[in-house]
Write a protein that binds this DNA or RNA. Structure first.
Lengths: 341, 341
DNA sequence: CTGTTAGCGCCTTCAG
DNA sequence: CTGAAGGCGCTAACAG
């Protein structure tokens, strides 16, 4: 591999000139610049990242921190990671994955001490997350992504649950729905203060009044059979329900089945709108599910750019960025009142 | 951060002694060893990875290469990546993600030239993949993972489609099924020589004869509506079919619906077995799908350990490792002949 | 505008 | 068994 020295001697200049030509930190005359360019091309020179990191004390590597993935909002974690990697690459950074297990705090300490990364993106943050303390103490720049507990003092990027819910209500009301049911995630998550569950819960209650819509909410595990039973029960008790909002991709099969087993058609009799979901599952169900999908690209690009801004010390803006989900209309939602129920 | 120098002076030895104490390449007296240990503990010393990499010319970082994820075998790429990261970490390596776009060869060249990684895991390899040529020319150790085109000359880890199909036949035959249908992925993939599609196709034909089972195969896009139509048509033409094998997780909703719309119950009248699938979707459908699931843990751990072995120059074994899928019985498969069809 | 040079933190000969 | 010292490839003062 060609080194900066090779380039320097081929171009007939000193190594520092080459270095400055590369970084632009110091002006370089046009001629020298030209010969340096030529030399670099000829040698197919690419700076050695490791050496550069050692000298500059910046690795330009960021870590994305994943605790165990179990319940996840959807199936889209892969897209989240890939999108983050893509953004990082675009800005000249590399993304490493850190999977932490039980005693995350200790593991994290060790990883951090190796000084491999400049900053960290934290996924799946929970209330009183021990990782945050570690990061703060070591003064490692970090950013929280999604599903955070309410921690406004940290920089975080999250889904705008409030706006998403509002748009969902607007959409359903526009279609004539006046009686809706909301399938949230588990009550356990709610009690644990899990961000998405709590916030959508609050938003739902709020907009119910605001939009003058009748509605009820159910906390469900990601268990299709259970959701199916609940759906049937609800439809029996209150046949006037014309729409379901689901924040639980995995239980969609149960929802669909429950509705159909009560003899209702989707979307003629009952509509389904999935929120905070990912494209792939939603589009594969039958009927394909109309959904407010996460804007993964925006979410991750923002996370990466904000983190890099912090690393560059040019971070000044608000410590919070909320991204609303975007509507993708498919076949599961339509005008209310088609049937005589 | 404490450096090796700090440890050396605290322990009253030279830096090289500390270094050797760390690597074990050279014997160190018990006393010195002890004081070095103490010093390291006191200072919470962890070697700086970057400096170590520069000096040793080994970064202990490996890259996992992802082209665009579109059709994917399932929804489990996330588990694949996370599992790889976990394995890497366990062996003291770090995993970076490289997402390549269009002109992969060039992009890959650039990334490689930065000399950040020691080796590469290639995902989603296709026939005549340009990335392989690049890797070979630069002599970067690599390993192919899954879904490769037939390239026995490269080291690769893959799913054992043959064995998986055989076990699936054994399972179904044991349940009394004698007439099965196989939902493969798209014909386009087949024509393109896409490994999983071609191999399962061959295995299916082979075992049909071998097990004296009647059967037919369908190539389908990952489109539930289409699969539903095909299923209904098939059931109409040949009511004797008692079991479906699916290698297409995304089309499962269509399959289920198609069967039910023909008035058949699952699994009393018709069974479904999904192969090469991932746990999460399979378990969420209604009924929960019995499936031969990828052994992601084994697959990725093998990929990582084999790659590391190569890096250490202690690679001698066979260039191929096949891992069969493992059966998880759920609710979609049962004895044949329950109904009078 | 440019060159010289001292590190960055660690590994690894080379002497002893 | 141990220490001294020269890199690894690059950055960033420092001195023109």
């Amino acid at each position: 591999m060609a080194t900066i020295k090779d380039v320097a001697s081929l171009a007939g200049v000193s190594v520092s000139t080459v270095s400055y030509a590369l970084s632009g930190v110091r002006p370089v005359s046009a001629e020298k610049m030209a010969s340096i360019q030529t030399a670099m091309q000829e040698l197919r020179y690419q700076p050695n990242r490791i050496a550069r990191s050692l000298a500059s004390k910046r690795t330009r590597i960021i870590a994305i921190l994943f605790p165990k993935v179990e319940h996840g909002i959807g199936f889209s974690e892969i897209d989240l990671i890939l999108e983050a990697a893509k953004s990082a690459l675009r800005y000249g950074y590399q993304l490493v994955i850190w999977t932490l297990t039980a005693n995350s705090a200790e593991e994290l300490q060790e990883l951090l001490t190796q000084e491999l990364v400049d900053g960290v993106i934290l996924m799946e943050v929970h209330l009183g997350d021990p990782r945050i303390g570690v990061l703060k103490k070591r003064r490692v720049p970090f950013i929280l992504l999604g599903r955070d507990a309410d921690k406004p003092e940290e920089t975080f990027i999250d889904i705008d649950f409030f706006t998403t819910m509002m748009e969902c209500f607007t959409y359903l009301k526009g279609l004539g729905h006046r009686n809706v049911a909301f399938i949230n995630q588990s009550e356990k998550s709610f009690r644990a203060g899990y961000g998405p569950v709590v916030r959508t819960h609050e938003a739902f209650s709020y907009f119910l009044e605001n939009f003058e819509i009748k509605g009820r909410e159910f906390f469900c595990e990601s268990d299709s059979a259970q959701v199916c039973a609940i759906t049937e029960k609800l439809l029996a008790e209150d046949p006037g329900v014309t729409a379901f909002i689901s924040m639980n991709d995995a239980s969609l099969p149960g929802l669909i089945r429950g509705i159909e087993q009560r003899g209702r058609r989707i979307p003629q009799d009952v509509s389904i709108v999935s929120i905070v979901s990912s494209a792939r599952p939603a589009s594969n169900y039958l009927p394909a599910i109309t959904a407010f999908e996460m804007d993964i690209h925006t979410l991750m690009d923002l996370a990466v750019t904000q983190l890099i801004a912090k690393l560059d010390g040019r971070y000044a803006e608000l410590p919070e960025r909320l991204i609303a989900c975007v509507l993708r209309e498919r076949q599961s939602a339509g005008a209310a009142g088609g049937s005589g129920f």
